[in-house]
Amino acid sequence: MTDVMTRLEPGSRAASRGFSDLTIRNLFIIPTIAFLIIFNVFPLLYSLWTSFTDFRASTTAPANWVGLANYRELLNDPFIWRNFTITAKYVLISVTGQVVVGFGLAMLLNRQIPFKGLITTLLLLPMMLSMAVVGLFWKLLYDPSFGIINYFLGLGKFEWLADPQVALYAVALVDIWMWSPFVMLLSLAGLSAVPKHLYEAAEIDRAGPFYTFFRITLPLVAPILMIAIIFRTMEAFKTFDHAYILSSQPTTELIAIRLYKMAFLEWQTGLSSAFAYIVLIMVVAITNIYVKYLNKAKAR
């Protein structure tokens, strides 16, 4: 810092401004830290406190400390457990679908094909769309009377969203369509980084395509695929927009939808804060498991 100051020409305009390096650094850092404290740390701690109270933001009544009552109420509520079960099922279907489709597309694109750049760009389009818009137009695509899905598949008046048993798969299918390109993109990056000489060596050793895939391709792409899975799992847990627009079946009420209703329709602020913390703990726990596997995959 002193060096910089001493290097400045005495009497120059910069020196006359009188800002040291430390001041300049603080000018950049303090607003960011203040922003984080005000908009991230404070709400996080405040919501933790409200999760132990009966606070309702819609009333002027003071918040009363209720200890673990909110957590107990939530964990004893069969509807909440149903929401968790539905969400787990949704995450499993959606992320598995995205990995299979996304990785498959990446494998196809990881070879010389005409218009490869154009095809890749077109395949990436779904994830660039607004989720609400995607929800609205998939609702039209699924329509039993005039939707083109039933028309092309010859399914007549099949009710994708009205059938409680099918609705969750229909919602997950939209998520797969939208986010497979994300997995594809990361997988493509991983595949292009696999050294070519390994495939040449495998070819010389007359290794079959399955052996090459499971012994070379998959292990080397696994770390980056794991990152894609972590991201997609966390996102799938938070799914709200298109699920809310597409269906109001109890069988598609994901935890984010239930949380929204609890917090902003019912104004049960304390209870919904507790719910949000339960979800947070679950997402952190699942992410940790993934990270453990990621580290293992890297170590290999």
Binding site: S58, P164, Q249, P250, K261, L265, E266
Partner: peptide, 23 residues
């Protein structure tokens, strides 16, 4: 009542599966 939204949520949770799902 102030808790009308909770009453609505419960009604939706109980009635919808019967009316639409036939449960």
């Amino acid at each position: 009542v102030p808790e009308y939204a909770e009453l609505l949520t419960a009604a939706n949770q109980r009635i919808y599966p019967y009316v639409v799902g036939g449960e």
